[in-house]
Design a protein around this nucleic acid. Structure first.
Length: 443
DNA sequence: AGTGTCACCAACCGGGCC
DNA sequence: TTCCGGCCCGGTTGGTGA
């Protein structure tokens, strides 16, 4: 590419520079912060219920442990190879994430927190040389202050920043930073990265692109967008424009009000009793209420679902999903629980033999509304004042004594919770957020 | 014995309506 | 009266990433 073309392409990017910073094997790195013996040994963190591997250090990846591998299938390998295995500790990871984002905000206020371990930073105001220097500085600070290793990708659009981050992670010589606003680097890398690595290309889209003869990211950038739009919808077309430097995905500095909220869990065993299913559903409704109250949101209908496992081949299968309407929008646990239980009552079928063995249940809402502004019911109005005071007291107790200290009896008392509660058998302490779980230093 | 949770988007489809 | 097309809607489905 000529210099003139390079300048043009630079201008097409609008001179914008976005950085995507993320934590390397984030959950594993959080565990390593609190146990020096975990350095350089393979570490994995499991999903809820100790089901699958969802975070792996490079040492664990090298042993062939894949993202999403069921733990019961790799357990032998882990024991033989000395892999350190942890249940997920979201309280800890969430707190580490907040600390890291506070460090990012020391460099620029323009930060979009896009997930628990990734944030976009707008570096447009910095000249190119300073951007890379700043990226190295941020990495070093996060490492020094929190112990978490990170990588930084810089590009004129989100898609290119994300791609740059992937390159920074996989090419050791780059020392954790890749800048694709640099035209030479842009030309160099796009034709060397497989299109399957691109953000937005998953298991369904990849074969479609391959069928169109697309192999590298550069192939996708240079193809006629129309057939791609036909196969991958506007999402695919947007990807092409983003790769060309035309920004289609804006930076969202103010988190948008959430539109939906779900609480879903697999059971640690299989549930066959109606009373156990009811306990689980009531507990999920309780948690839903907590989440909605925290954000001042309410809902006037909830969907309750429960189903057997796809993996239980040869057993009777059943999947239930039902929507229950409330008289008006609420986040009162004592209104949500009866609604959720109504969903069970309406759909429960007496067990035959063999019985349905349910593996998972959940409570889901869409269309959340800010409660202050929501339409009041003409009939069946709920007593918001009274419910508000009661729920406020409940939330205060649970904040002080730990979640689940005070729960409605329908959600089950500790000694009744057997078959359905989630497993976390290998969870580390919540080092940074619970006083009684602080790490102890021995002098 | 046992295979995660959650949010969001886009497409699609059927029903109601004009 | 019936049919049709276009539009909006609500609900469902499938895809994605982390």
């Amino acid at each position: 590419m000529s210099t003139a073309e390079a300048r043009l392409r630079d201008r097409i990017g609008g001179g914008r520079a976005l950085a995507l910073i993320d934590g390397n094997s984030f959950y594993c790195s959080c565990e390593r912060v609190f146990d020096a013996k975990l350095a350089r040994v393979p570490v994995i963190v499991l999903s809820n219920n100790d089901g699958c591997a969802i975070a792996r250090t490079p040492e664990a990846k090298a042993l062939g442990i894949k993202m999403g591998d069921p733990y019961f299938k790799i357990r032998g390998l882990c024991e033989a190879q000395g892999v350190r295995v942890f249940s997920s500790n979201y309280t800890l990871y969430g707190d580490m994430s907040a600390r890291i984002n506070a460090i990012y905000r020391d460099s620029t206020p323009d930060v979009e927190v896009s997930s628990i371990d990734e944030s976009f930073l707008d570096l447009t105001a910095f000249v190119r040389r300073d951007r890379v220097a700043l990226a190295r500085d941020i990495r070093a600070t996060v490492r020094a202050w929190t112990g978490i290793p990170t990588c930084v990708g810089i590009g004129p659009t989100k898609t290119l920043a994300k791609l740059a981050n992937h390159i920074a992670k996989t090419v050791p010589e780059l020392d954790g930073v890749c800048d694709l606003t640099e035209p030479t680097a842009y030309e160099h890398w796009l034709c060397r990265i497989h299109v399957g690595e691109l953000w937005g290309v998953g298991r369904a889209s990849l074969p479609k692109l391959e069928a169109m003869g697309i192999d590298t990211v550069a192939d996708l950038r240079d193809i006629d967008p129309r057939p791609v739009r036909k196969a991958l919808t506007v999402v695919g077309e947007r990807m092409i424009h983003e790769l060309r430097g035309v920004s289609c995905l804006g930076l969202e500095l103010v988190p948008a009000r959430r539109k939906g909220c779900a609480v879903t869990r697999s059971f640690s065993g299989r549930v066959t009793e109606r009373s156990e299913l009811e306990q689980a559903v009531a507990a999920h409704a309780t948690r839903l209420g907590e989440k909605l109250r925290r954000e001042g949101l309410g809902t006037d209908h909830i969907t309750v679902f429960y189903h057997t496992s796809e993996h239980d081949r040869g057993e009777p299968m059943r999947s239930v999903s039902t929507m229950v309407t409330l008289p008006e929008a609420t986040n009162d646990t004592l209104a949500l629980i009866p609604a959720a239980l109504h969903g069970v009552a309406r759909t429960w079928r007496e067990q035959g033999s063999p019985p349905w063995r349910y593996s998972k249940a959940g409570v889901v809402t869409v269309d959340l509304k800010p409660l202050a502004a929501s339409q009041r019911a003409l009939i069946g109005q709920l007593d918001r004042e009274r419910a508000g005071r009661l729920m406020g007291a409940l939330d205060v107790c649970n904040a002080r004594f730990g979640r689940g200290s005070v729960v409605p009896a329908r959600a089950g008392l500790a000694q009744q919770r057997r078959t359905w509660t989630t497993k976390f058998e290998m969870r580390t302490p919540r080092y940074t957020t619970q006083v009684d779980e602080l790490p102890v230093a021995h002098a």
